[in-house]
């Protein structure tokens, strides 16, 4: 395949899994986040620390950009030059978008990050050599590198605090890349238990830690290929398709009155997270 050919057919080359008919049978994990109900309270972020053994890096390392918050709340001000932000701030929960054509996967020299059949972008810590190419290539900047061996770093997990660590997931050592996994440990546990019953997971049986805690239920997580899941219904109602780089509704003249969109969709990573635009009252 020539370079020209590769570039021309990049989208197809990148996104299509060699599937005969139905990809993602029986699962495709996806999310939708309603930014009109998200209040930016950070409960999700703390839940992520609690669930996923994230180290508290301390002030100095935070200053160096080494924070390990898999789930972070970005805050934006309106950029229209007003004296006061009289329509408030805008909060955006940002974590790994579990892209279907993930830019991080293609650049990993050792195949440590790759796609799973259920549509997750997995990270095999034991395979990672710490090249950090994936992080460099991630348009969302949601990959976090272990610059230090946090388990043995002073005051990160003093003896008592190790008792809080979640034994269901690996504690990462120095030189390893990590990121949001959609709480894969919960997904795998759920999958295993329903396999024993000979069925597949129903909507709501697996919740991510952030979704579970969100006081306003702004986060919906579920199986996108299950028509009975809320996330499927939301994506459908918002007319957001997974493997396209421009939604049909956006091509229509005058746009649509639907709120669903994906961030940096035009880069063709095919993110698995749909955001619902924040709404502001027009009458005031």
């Amino acid at each position: 395949m020539s370079v020209t050919n590769l570039l021309e057919n990049w989208a197809e080359f990148r996104h299509t899994h060699p599937v005969d008919d139905v990809p993602h049978d029986p699962y495709k994990w996806a999310m939708s986040i309603d930014m009109d109900t998200c209040t930016g309270c950070n409960a999700c972020s703390v839940a992520c620390y609690a669930e996923n053994n994230l180290p508290v890096v301390g002030k100095d390392r935070y200053e160096h950009g080494q924070a390990m918050h898999w789930m972070r709340i970005e805050r934006y001000w309106p950029e229209d030059g007003r004296e006061f932000p009289d329509q408030g701030a805008q909060f955006l929960p940002m974590m790994c978008q579990q892209c279907e054509a993930a830019p991080c996967e293609t650049v990993c020299p050792v195949g440590a990050t790759n796609h799973t059949a259920d549509g997750l972008n997995s990270q095999a810590y034991n395979r990672c050599i710490g090249s950090r190419y994936c992080s460099a290539n991630c348009p969302f900047k949601v990959r976090y590198f272990n610059w230090y061996d946090y388990p043995t770093t002073e005051n990160v997990w003093p003896a008592e605090m190790t008792m809080q660590l979640n034994p269901d997931i690996t504690l990462r050592g120095k030189g390893v890349m990590e990121k949001c996994t959609f709480c894969v440990q919960r997904i795998r546990a759920g999958e295993r238990s329903v396999k024993n019953e000979g069925r597949i997971l129903r909507d709501g049986e697996v919740q991510t830690a952030c979704q579970q805690v969100c006081p306003t239920n702004a986060i919906t997580f579920g199986n996108l290929v299950d028509p009975d899941s809320r996330v499927h219904q939301q994506w459908k109602a918002q007319r957001v398709e997974l493997t396209v780089d421009e939604q049909e509704k956006d091509k229509e003249e005058g746009g649509s009155d639907l709120r669903g969109y994906r961030i940096l969709e035009e880069l063709r990573p095919y993110p698995s997270v749909m955001y619902l635009e924040r709404v502001r009252e027009s009458a005031i």
Binding site: F91, L92, L258, R259, Y275, E277, R278, V279
Partner: peptide, 10 residues
């Protein structure tokens, strides 16, 4: 990135 609409548009 973080989008916003007014209520009369949705």
């Amino acid at each position: 990135i973080a989008l916003s609409v007014t209520s009369d548009q949705v």
